[in-house]
């Protein structure tokens, strides 16, 4: 039951974020890159304002899987770096916090691009 409730919360919050994104797409005809940037910056703002940790506690993967989580990681890393190492930490903190994700995206992209070719589509 507890599991079910967690997953329900994850589903609802994650779905709501995506739904908001779709609303933006429908209303403003934004391209996918603009949508991703908007939501990442939203994550940065949520992290700085401190709201993100509450959301994360409530819906864990519901907010960390959307790109909002990526933004919050960036901001969190930068803030931690700033408090621990000063200016240098402020500069490199954000990148080091998301380095695993970024590296894996680049590596997987490279490997798959060597193995696969794009296919034409019919819909």
């Amino acid at each position: 039951m507890e599991y079910f409730l967690t997953y329900l919360k994850v589903f609802a919050v994650g779905g709501a974020i995506c739904c908001l994104g779709q609303l933006l797409i429908n209303k403003t005809k934004m391209s996918s890159a603009r949508i991703l940037v908007t939501f990442m910056l939203l994550g940065v703002i949520l992290e700085v304002s401190g709201a993100f940790s509450y959301l994360k506690e409530f819906a864990s993967a519901g907010v960390t899987v959307p790109i909002v989580g990526f933004g919050s990681n960036l901001a969190k890393g930068a803030l931690e770096g700033a408090s621990e190492e000063g200016l240098l930490g402020a500069v490199k903190g954000g990148m080091s916090a998301v380095s695993a994700g970024l590296t894996s995206v680049i590596v997987f992209g490279f490997v798959f691009a060597l193995l696969f070719k794009s296919k034409s589509k019919k819909i």
Binding site: Q22, I67, F108
Partner: peptide, 20 residues
């Protein structure tokens, strides 16, 4: 649409699709 763009998988898609 937005349901598959906004999750981190959508970010991976936006990197891998031009590479492929």
């Amino acid at each position: 649409g937005g349901g598959s763009i906004i999750p981190i998988t959508g970010f991976a898609n936006s990197v891998v699709s031009p590479a492929v």
